[in-house]
Amino acid sequence: MSGKENAEILGSIGAMVEAEKRLRARIASGAADQEEARAELAALEVKLDQCWDLLRQRRARAEFGEDPGGAKLRPAAEVEGYQS
């Protein structure tokens, strides 16, 4: 597994989680336009889901002896359609 690429993905996830926390705090405090902030939050959550999905794909490919580099960012509609 290529640790460098996974570390980059995890770094992006960390940055987005921090952005999500700041945005939620702005929403809670009333410092943000509610409609705009909620739309931004929804978009951020989709991006996070896509990144987590990409990381899971990479890890699974590596586990089964495949090239993690073959993992691709899936469309939002596909990732958001998954059921837990």
Rank of each mutant, 00 (worst) to 15 (best):
residue 48 L to V: 02
residue 76 A to S: 11
residue 54 L to G: 01
residue 13 I to Y: 04
residue 32 A to P: 00
residue 81 G to E: 05
residue 25 A to C: 04
residue 65 G to T: 06
residue 43 A to R: 11
residue 47 K to Q: 14
residue 50 Q to R: 15
residue 16 M to H: 14
residue 36 E to M: 11
residue 60 A to Y: 10
residue 78 E to N: 00
residue 28 A to F: 08
residue 84 S to G: 10
residue 2 S to A: 07
residue 58 R to W: 04
residue 6 N to V: 09
residue 11 G to W: 07
residue 51 C to F: 12
residue 27 I to Y: 06
residue 28 A to S: 15
residue 60 A to M: 14
residue 22 R to G: 10
residue 5 E to Y: 05
residue 42 A to P: 00
residue 20 E to W: 02
residue 25 A to W: 03
residue 70 G to K: 09
residue 14 G to V: 04
residue 33 D to G: 03
residue 50 Q to K: 13
residue 82 Y to R: 13
residue 38 R to K: 15
residue 4 K to C: 06
residue 79 V to I: 06
residue 38 R to I: 03
residue 35 E to L: 14
residue 68 P to K: 07
residue 77 A to R: 07
residue 70 G to W: 10
residue 59 R to L: 15
residue 66 E to S: 08
residue 17 V to Y: 06
residue 54 L to I: 05
residue 19 A to N: 09
residue 4 K to Y: 12
residue 65 G to L: 08
residue 67 D to S: 09
residue 59 R to P: 00
residue 68 P to N: 05
residue 26 R to G: 01
residue 46 V to N: 01
residue 60 A to E: 11
residue 22 R to N: 10
residue 51 C to D: 12
residue 65 G to Y: 11
residue 64 F to Y: 12
residue 40 E to D: 13
residue 66 E to Q: 15
residue 71 A to I: 04
residue 1 M to R: 09
residue 54 L to H: 05
residue 2 S to R: 13
residue 21 K to T: 07
residue 60 A to R: 12
residue 6 N to G: 07
residue 72 K to Y: 02
residue 62 A to T: 06
residue 72 K to R: 15
residue 10 L to R: 14
residue 6 N to Q: 15
residue 39 A to Y: 01
residue 49 D to I: 00
residue 22 R to Y: 09
residue 81 G to D: 07
residue 33 D to A: 09
residue 74 R to A: 12
residue 11 G to H: 06
residue 57 Q to T: 03
residue 20 E to I: 01
residue 75 P to H: 12
residue 46 V to L: 03
